[in-house]
Amino acid sequence: MFSFGEIPQHAELRALFEDLYLRYNRREFVHPDPVELLYCYQETGDREVAALLAAALAYGRASQIVKKASQVLEVMGASPKGFVLSHSLKELQKVFKDFKHRFTDGKSVAGLFYGIRGVLLEYGSLEMCAECYVNEGHLKAKEAITGLFESLLRHGMPSSVLPDPRKPSACKRLYLFLKWMIRKDSIDPGGWSALKPSELIYPLDTHIFSIARALGATDRKSADFKAALDVTEFFRRINPLDPLKYDFVLTRFGIRPDLNKKEFLEICCGNRMKKGH
């Protein structure tokens, strides 16, 4: 069992997170996580298409997400970008007619790819599309992802395939996609330069939300967009240049038997957690 040592003060959180990062931010600890599906694509144009597909399916059990996304990517071959550019909507619907992942069926996947096709033909890449919508505001990640989402809709993507960043939801899957494409380390493959890591918004799921609330990062009662901003700001204070750096290792709690979430939170929060405050 991993030992965290002495209970740190709040100012020591970064040292604790850095220790976790050094220990667990490794490829050997990735499976099952959909980010593993992106490692085989050396061209950014292929990786961004694969990443958006993986993000669209990133709900439910991780192992099932990997399984279903793998099925789609195997059909697409070595170049997902080339695949979507070379198929019509009718052809895409035929190829994926038997696909099903929870609420996402083959028609939805075909629609997603057709929307991607239209964006690629108009802008040249998903990144160039997203970058066109980035202004000088403090929420550049939201601008980028909203512009991309609207462009995909305009080119035929069904609105149900991805969460709508214009609504109050945390849009975890879209900000997860952005994290994969912007950050670059042992886990996140990167490839985009449209944003800096410091400008990303936390891909807030229920697991990270529960940790964030325990750490006092937010007092929101639901994992909505405002909560995602709270959590982002909390981690930005710990690591201003890369607030999402510890996302992967924190998601290992509840997955790895040698990482105890309760112990971790008690150490982070000290007696406040033990007293139930």
Rank of each mutant, 00 (worst) to 15 (best):
F4H: 12
F4M: 10
E6L: 06
I7D: 14
P8G: 09
L13M: 09
L13S: 07
L13I: 05
R14G: 00
R14Q: 10
A15C: 08
L16D: 08
L20E: 13
L22T: 07
R27H: 06
E28P: 04
F29E: 07
V30I: 15
H31P: 09
P32N: 08
P32H: 05
P34T: 09
V35P: 14
V35W: 14
E36Y: 03
E36M: 15
D46C: 04
R47Y: 02
R47P: 03
A51M: 00
L52H: 00
A56C: 06
A58P: 01
Y59M: 08
Y59E: 08
G60I: 05
G60D: 07
Q64A: 13
V66I: 03
K68H: 04
A69E: 07
V75G: 06
V75H: 06
P80V: 12
K81H: 10
K81S: 13
K81G: 03
G82H: 09
S88D: 10
L89N: 11
L92F: 01
D98M: 09
F99E: 09
K100G: 03
R102Y: 14
F103C: 04
D105S: 09
V109R: 06
A110K: 04
G115L: 04
L120M: 10
L126A: 04
Y133H: 15
N135M: 13
E136F: 08
G137K: 02
K142E: 15
F149S: 10
S151K: 15
L153V: 10
R154F: 14
M157D: 07
P158H: 11
S160N: 13
S160I: 13
L162F: 10
P165V: 05
P165G: 02
L174H: 05
Y175H: 12
K179A: 15
M181G: 02
M181L: 14
I182Q: 02
K184Y: 05
G190F: 07
G191I: 07
A194M: 15
E199H: 12
L200I: 07
I201E: 15
I201Q: 11
Y202F: 15
P203S: 03
F209P: 03
I211Q: 15
A214S: 15
L215G: 06
G216A: 10
A217D: 07
A223T: 04
F225P: 01
K226F: 04
K226C: 01
K226L: 11
A227N: 03
A228V: 03
D230I: 00
V231L: 00
T232K: 02
T232Q: 00
T232R: 03
E233C: 02
R237G: 09
N239V: 05
L241C: 10
D242H: 06
D242F: 05
K245N: 03
K245C: 03
Y246T: 04
F248I: 11
F248A: 11
V249Q: 04
T251F: 12
R252W: 00
K262T: 14
F264I: 02
C269L: 15
G270R: 01
R272L: 09
K274S: 00
